[in-house]
Design a protein around this nucleic acid. Sequence first.
DNA 1: TTCCCTAACCCAAACGTTTGGGCCAAACGT
DNA 2: ACGTTTGGCCCAAACGTTTGGGTTAGGGAA
Lengths: 343, 343
Amino acid sequence: MAESKARQVTLRSIADQLGLHVSTVSRVLNGRADDGARAASGDTATRIRRLAQELGYQPDPHGSGLRTGRSKLVGVLVPRLSDLVLAMIYEGIDEAAGELGLTTITANSRDDDKTRRVRTKMLLARRVEGLIFGDASLDSGFLDELAADGGKFVLVNRRAGEHPSVTADDLLGGRLAAEHLLGLGHTDVAVIAGEPYASTGADRTAGFVGLYRDRGLPAPRVVHSPFDTAGGRLAAERLLADPNRPTAIFAVNDFAAIGAMGAARDHGLTVGTDISIMGYNDTPLAAELPVPLTSVSVPMRDMGRRALQMLTRLLFGGEVRSERLPPVLAARASTARIRPAAL
Amino acid sequence: MAESKARQVTLRSIADQLGLHVSTVSRVLNGRADDGARAASGDTATRIRRLAQELGYQPDPHGSGLRTGRSKLVGVLVPRLSDLVLAMIYEGIDEAAGELGLTTITANSRDDDKTRRVRTKMLLARRVEGLIFGDASLDSGFLDELAADGGKFVLVNRRAGEHPSVTADDLLGGRLAAEHLLGLGHTDVAVIAGEPYASTGADRTAGFVGLYRDRGLPAPRVVHSPFDTAGGRLAAERLLADPNRPTAIFAVNDFAAIGAMGAARDHGLTVGTDISIMGYNDTPLAAELPVPLTSVSVPMRDMGRRALQMLTRLLFGGEVRSERLPPVLAARASTARIRPAAL
DNA sequence: TTCCCTAACCCAAACGTTTGGGCCAAACGT
DNA sequence: ACGTTTGGCCCAAACGTTTGGGTTAGGGAA
């Protein structure tokens, strides 16, 4: 494209200009070091390299892909890229892919099974070498089918079944959240748990609820919702409508937490004093909010990086073991010691 | 990949199984309608189609790309995908691309000229047919160079030079913001203007400042900052440190506005009563914040869609004219009529 | 009956790479 | 002096498609 008139610069054009054979040029430019060394004299090799450089030669992926059967493409399926969490994970994936000479193609599944299948088929039609799913659903057989068909993939962020995955330890994260709120004296708490099909929300909720149960306290109320701000607001409104509302709310997602903060304010409550609210993921936004949001920090970009690396291990024959990264609590002003007056 | 053992299903394998020639199969499956009709009898055609369907044939893009010289790929360069605005624009681009049988590849430039060049080169090496830049910079010659080299591209969100672009009418948006604040009685205002190299911030600021000047009012203070929350907070802190601080702040970006809200709160000010703050883009978050944020709504997804469509027009020989989409004000609680007491 | 037409195919080349196998001449070993 | 190695290169096939141009057989017109 950058040379629409000047025709493509190809191995052949370089070879012709130098009076060499195309295979010689190929070996020098792309063969493994030893192969290239035997293919041409040092002098010829530098002449080739210099001309290639000068002409801005870039191997045509169609040609090499056709010959080698390798596309150097990996597909990434996410619920939606406009979800900041997934966007950051994707950035990690793409970063690591670039370092390995791979290119990523991404698509949104909108957490819809039909779309998921269609988009995956499109990625496979593009001959991706492997896939990374950021939208794994606990209740869909899709991944099992794909694995049975010999599809190579890893999961990121959400786990499902026994498929290899890179996730944060959401169970632990949920416990951290519970410990934090308990430490502040909150015994009457509620969870905005996200979508039931996502392991992230489910595990965080399970960890949270588990700790309260372990301490012999009444089980927190659990209400499901979408992972976004509007969903969080609605869920919180339901909770706050209750005459004896909880003194603290744990939302499994920062955006849901922000929605909950809005709902709290609508109820005339000041977040951090009248009610404690915490989120999850420690989005860059969390620390900068008017009332800084307590959250649980997970290494999103790193999760992406590791997922890509795990996928390449998988592709090059290795067996892989799922990884579970540790989360860490980020306490801020949105959660505070319970005030009896608040009741 | 889905058939790692069963070997690829190719035109040849289909042809062999039916005792036909590969070219016949190709014409039926992929030729234009008339070509396909002349290539085989209706009966043969259905046999071919049925088998292809049954085997799940998907044309190999390496093969067809090599032959036709078309990759059906378009490259999308953005500052960062973890910027919600760009993510939504990209979703629009990708959506429209899918409808046209195109696939998008995206990369982050981090608004850094070196990275921009490197990533663009990578996209070109992948043989994208055209590019969409969401990271145009007012002060870089890069796009001019690329255009001179015959590169096919359009800009989205930000404009630059005379290159074809799909943007919102940011000048108008800035005026809308100014009218809104003026209508509420704010004559002492400030702008958090974003990065100077981005046309978005520059135009919004120019429109805003222009209206105040047109009305013969003192020129608003203008302070630059990154487009994110932390940047907005810092900029606002500078503004609020001034003993006679502005009664309203216009941030050219919702995230910067959120940061500004945080800074205001730190200064003991209640947003919407003690001080008015407004943002830009009308991010989904804006309406759901504890104090709902007044913003200027721009059709981000549609901008993406149109950019992709404009690019295809450009690729298929047409001339194109830049488009400027109208923004609309979304007034909310974060801006209110000035109270003399606030001074 | 002869000629032409058309429907329904097949043939072959080309796109740019990669890669296993030549081939030749010069250098080396004995 | 003669065989062997080896450095330095060339050959050719193959990957899966597309596409301009055959080729054949059967049917219709004259």
